[in-house]
């Protein structure tokens, strides 16, 4: 998807945020681009074109801008994407993606253009993503292009941990911190 600035309202329109669990968001991914006013598949939209498929989404710069809604990451993951490649990601979206088994990979604008053009001309293009060695490459003979990822996030993704497991293990330190603060705002009343 070569479009730039794909915002969270496009990835998952607000009217779909009414769910109370994490299921089913994949069905509504890019809804207003995928479907027309009569809820019929829009033939011009890439996700409705059977020639294009896979777990990697390659998108124009500033992917995921806008809202902090994590539902955007759930929608992409629910649909089946596991990797997004772009030249720039919005901050909050990036964090939400990493927390949900969805890997955002930032590459140079030049390489992004190469990928977009290659895929557009050859819908059956294959891209390999190697997380332990941190590279992506166009099959069969492309160069290995390195990407950055925070060491902690990498470890979590590879092992299926989440941040909460980690933080819960530090409860004692948190309680200690609370006791040693130089200024503590007076507490709100307890709820009955």
């Amino acid at each position: 998807m070569p479009m730039e600035d794909i915002d969270t309202d496009q990835i998952i329109p607000a009217r779909f945020l009414k769910a109370i669990d994490k299921l089913g968001f994949g069905d509504n991914l890019f809804y207003d681009w995928r479907y027309d006013k009569n809820d019929q598949p829009n033939p011009d939209f890439v996700l409705n074109n059977p020639l294009y498929s896979g777990k990697i989404l390659v998108a124009g710069k500033n992917f995921g801008s806008g809202s902090s809604r994590e539902h955007a990451a759930w929608a992409l993951h629910g649909y089946g994407f596991r990797v997004i490649i772009s030249s720039f990601f919005a901050d909050i979206f990036k964090g939400n993606a990493l927390n949900n088994g969805l890997l955002p990979i930032q590459v140079s604008p030049e390489y992004l253009d190469i990928l977009l053009q290659t895929i557009s001309q050859h819908p059956d293009t294959r891209i390999t993503m190697n997380l332990p060695e941190q590279y992506v490459m166009l099959e069969p003979e492309g160069e290995k292009v390195h990407f950055e990822i925070d060491g902690y996030k990498k470890m979590c993704l590879l092992n299926g941990y989440d941040d909460i497991d980690y933080l819960l293990s530090l409860k004692d330190k948190i309680v200690e911190f609370e006791k040693n603060r130089s200024y503590v705002p007076p507490p709100l009343p307890a709820t009955n």
């Binding site: 994590e70 909050i92 941040d163 909460i164 819960l168």
Partner: peptide
């Protein structure tokens, strides 16, 4: 602003 997983982090550990 934070995502829902982070809301859970704050619920669990402040």
């Amino acid at each position: 602003g934070i995502g829902t997983s982070q809301v859970e982090q704050v619920f669990a550990t402040q």
